[in-house]
Simulated assay, not measured.
Amino acid sequence: MWWQGDMVMVDEEGYWFHHGRADDVIKVSGRRTGPGELEDVVNQYPGVLEAAAIGVPHAVRGEEIALFIVQKPGESIDASDLKRHVTNALGKPYEPAEIHVVADLPKTRTQKIMRRLIKQRYLGEALGDTSSLMNPGALEGLPKRHAVDQ
């Protein structure tokens, strides 16, 4: 079952794939992309265990992309190489403006990454309802955007 507002794809064999909420869409320079599409590309990069992509306000482009990455144990990530990786896969408009390596991403009990909370924490907004959060300590490990960045 899906609701209007969800992004769903049906393949040639009739299988349905739920890609997430359409309200999570990131709009960069007039191009609309779901965070799942960005995260799929980032998760293919060596050393990335998991990733979350959010759109943050930008005065000219509308939004720019901020990535929050959990590294595989013992691995490191070269930010400039990861930016090239994303750009090669999706195009120059999708080059991440910011990449933050974090210890954990906030998730529900069903392991859904809580992008809303990541964005609210990063932008310094009130978090609202966090009752479905499995690992509240993950929020404390997320950076906050500095006023000069906005």
Rank of each mutant, 00 (worst) to 15 (best):
A22K: 11
D23C: 12
D24C: 02
D24S: 07
D24T: 06
V25I: 15
I26S: 07
K27W: 06
K27H: 11
K27I: 13
K27A: 14
V28K: 07
S29R: 15
S29D: 15
G30P: 12
G30R: 11
G30L: 09
G30C: 15
R32P: 02
R32G: 13
T33W: 07
G34N: 07
P35S: 00
P35I: 00
G36L: 07
G36S: 03
G36F: 02
G36W: 04
E37N: 10
L38W: 01
L38C: 01
L38E: 00
L38V: 11
L38H: 00
E39L: 01
E39M: 05
D40T: 10
D40L: 04
D40S: 11
V41C: 01
V42P: 00
N43K: 15
N43Q: 11
Y45D: 05
P46A: 02
P46V: 02
P46C: 03
P46L: 02
G47P: 07
G47E: 09
L49Y: 15
L49A: 15
E50D: 13
E50N: 14
A51D: 04
A51E: 04
A51K: 08
A51L: 12
A52M: 08
A53C: 07
I54K: 08
I54P: 12
G55I: 10
G55T: 06
G55H: 11
G55S: 13
G55F: 13
G55K: 11
G55W: 09
V56C: 06
V56G: 06
V56L: 11
H58I: 09
H58Q: 13
A59Y: 12
A59V: 13
A59T: 08
V60L: 15
R61P: 09
G62S: 08
G62F: 07
E63R: 03
E63D: 07
E64A: 15
I65Q: 00
I65T: 10
A66V: 07
L67F: 03
L67W: 00
L67V: 01
F68Y: 02
V70Q: 10
V70Y: 10
V70F: 10
Q71T: 09
K72S: 12
K72R: 14
P73R: 03
G74R: 14
S76P: 03
I77D: 06
I77V: 15
D78W: 04
A79M: 05
S80R: 04
D81Q: 09
D81A: 05
L82H: 01
L82A: 01
H85Y: 06
H85K: 06
H85Q: 05
V86C: 04
V86M: 11
T87N: 05
T87A: 11
